[in-house]
Nucleic acid binder design. Structure first.
Lengths: 148, 148
DNA sequence: CATCTTTTTTAGAATAATTCTTGATATTAA
DNA sequence: TTAATATCAAGAATTATTCTAAAAAAGATG
């Protein structure tokens, strides 16, 4: 029972050791937390979720774990302006939509392929290796509320 | 002589008062600084540039002025991850390219029109009113250096 | 012009997120 | 087991930014 978590754990273990890192209970819990509820929590939010099952963990450790997960590519940092960094376990290339009313963050699929495909008029000579797309507006839930 | 600065000043004056704000020597100088050298400086960098002609200005004032300029729409804030906010006096819709080698920031034209035109597969119900595109990579200058 | 009002500036304190430091603890290797 | 290394944890430190409160400047009014 609970094959999903076992499989997830195997991926984590493999990926960590590929980066010369050890699998620890803390990393596992932090990773599980991100995978279980994929709503782009801040480090602080992750901290309070993890504390529920591991009350002795410290915020510094959560930051450390998140950093390692980002380093080994299992987790992405998501930033909007200078607000707290959020963490995202969706590895597919995607952008983010921020609802200015409820503050929720939604993943938005990007057209696969190179950034050039976005139709950007990139002058000669720029080599792009990362693309970051952020949208701001009103999400469907808030939009609906407003109409009524 | 110096018609450009006079014209610029007139625009600033008009725009400020449209927002119920006064034209001050500090705001004028901060705005001029951004318009004169359009390289996306941080507040701190603006501060040190402004100090050259106005040695008594304080950093808080620079922050205040920048905030007002942003409020009244003459200046845009530009963020990359959680680094210091940068300020940009280019009002045309555009994205930003960050060179990971020299740290320079370049404006990148976006295809005019709605965000949907970027080819984003936006699910039904999202109303977008702001689009933010950041690219990361190597700029032409650094690319050329590397080849040789 | 003198006075009153409002806005702006300023210096320094406060804040918030994150990183750093250092010693304790756990894990692996020998 | 012992040694070596990696990780964790608690709190201090850092950094960018905002807040606060008082002084200065600008504009309006009589």
């Amino acid at each position: 029972m609970n094959g999903i978590k076992n499989q997830r754990q195997a991926v984590l273990d493999r990926t960590l050791s590929r980066s010369g890192l050890r699998m620890t209970r803390q990393r596992q819990t932090v990773y599980d937390t991100l995978m279980d509820q994929r709503d782009h929590p801040t480090a602080d939010e992750v901290f309070s979720r993890v504390k529920r099952t591991m009350p002795t963990i410290s915020l510094a450790t959560v930051y450390n774990c998140l950093e390692k997960l980002v380093d080994c590519g299992l987790v992405r940092q998501v930033n909007r302006d200078r607000e707290s960094t959020r963490y995202c376990a969706n590895l597919k290339e995607h952008g983010h939509f921020y609802c200015r009313q409820c503050g929720s963050v939604h993943d938005i699929d990007l057209p696969s392929g190179q950034p050039a495909d976005l139709g950007l008029a990139l002058p000669e000579g720029f080599r792009v290796d990362q693309l970051d797309v952020n949208l701001r507006g009103v999400c469907p839930e808030c939009g609906a509320k407003q109409q009524s």
